[in-house]
Computed example of a mutant assay.
Amino acid sequence: MRALLIGAVEGTRVALDAIANAPGWTLAAVASLPIERASRHSDFVDLAPGADAASAQLIRVTDGNSADFIEQVRAIAPDFTFVIGWSQLCGPALRQAVNDRVVGYHTAALPRLRGRATIPWTILLDEKITGSTLFRIDDGVDSGPILSQRFFHVAPDETAASLYSKHMAALGSMMIELLPALAVGAAVETPQDDRLATWAARRRPSDGWIDWTRAAADVDRLVRAVGRPYPGATTVSSTGPMTIWRTERFAGTDRYHALPGQVLDRDESTFVVRCGDGEALRVLEFSGAAIPPLHTHLRAAS
């Protein structure tokens, strides 16, 4: 079986390894972004080494629905196309060029959280259980029949990085199981129940600005949701803009009187900030500016 893989992130690399090592499969080509367009994905991965190791053709492309790319795809003549970690929808012309045999991947338990930024949204929504999904791409957005799905718990202290890692492990195991079934025509397609569908909107780096008038639990959840490999939660102090990567709840706030966003305490490497509910967070990891002075205020961008 000949496979075409389209994508530009860590999940694409996981799929690349699975296809390259699957008996009866040949990774004919990998389509990915040019290096100069890497900023399209905060978790961009250069797939050139993997494509080279698999003896697969590497195609650098910015528009997966362009006429030039579709002609290249027809020449490759894949039996299946895998679109994993690609920010563009697959248009009808592309799907027709590969006989509508297109498999997608989604970091959520479809039909829940169709759309964008699903790992941050999973944490922001305080989801208790989520899942990874392989599905057949159709005319909709993440709406095609499910081919494989893995469910797992979301920890109370889950971070974007730890949840991302869980999804990558699930994707790897799902690909290993699905590829033999696809090869012999035994893959089972389960239609999604649209009554259960929810949609996640796109998030931008500016959505990570911290509002210190929110409760401490909400601020901590934002920090965990938008941390690495994403741009991080941001604020501004008298020392300049800073990105906050890790926080923990601070005990003993009843002994301090301060306003939301005000620095209560500090040491050589950490500092404490009051939140809108009267609780406080100790900032354990940050970048971009020095520790703010005691009693100064942190704020969002003006």
Rank of each mutant, 00 (worst) to 15 (best):
M1C: 09
A3L: 08
L5K: 07
L5N: 03
G7I: 04
G11Q: 08
R13C: 02
R13N: 14
V14P: 00
L16N: 03
A20W: 06
A31N: 03
S32T: 15
A38R: 14
H41T: 04
D43H: 11
D43R: 02
V45A: 10
S55C: 12
R60M: 11
R60P: 06
D63V: 03
N65Y: 01
S66Q: 03
V73W: 00
F80N: 03
T81K: 05
W86R: 02
A93H: 11
L94F: 14
V102M: 04
Y105C: 14
R112F: 13
R116Q: 12
A117F: 01
T118H: 04
I119T: 08
I119Q: 07
W121P: 08
T122G: 06
T122R: 06
T122S: 15
E127I: 06
I129S: 10
G131L: 10
T133R: 05
R136T: 11
D139F: 01
G140N: 10
R150E: 15
F152W: 06
A155G: 01
D157S: 11
S165P: 01
S165H: 12
S165G: 10
K166W: 01
H167D: 06
A170V: 02
S173M: 11
M174K: 04
E177Y: 03
E177L: 09
L178H: 08
L179E: 07
P180A: 08
P191T: 10
R195W: 08
A201D: 15
W212H: 00
R214Q: 15
A217K: 13
V219G: 05
L222R: 04
L222Y: 03
A225Q: 05
V226L: 08
T234F: 00
V236A: 05
I244F: 03
W245T: 00
W245Q: 10
T253M: 03
Y256E: 07
A258G: 13
P260Y: 04
Q262L: 03
V263I: 15
D267G: 10
T270A: 12
V272D: 02
R274C: 09
D277H: 08
E279K: 09
R282Q: 12
V283K: 01
A289Y: 05
A290N: 13
P293R: 12
P293Q: 09
H295W: 12
H295Q: 12
T296W: 07
H297S: 14
H297M: 15
L298R: 07
A301M: 12
A301Q: 14
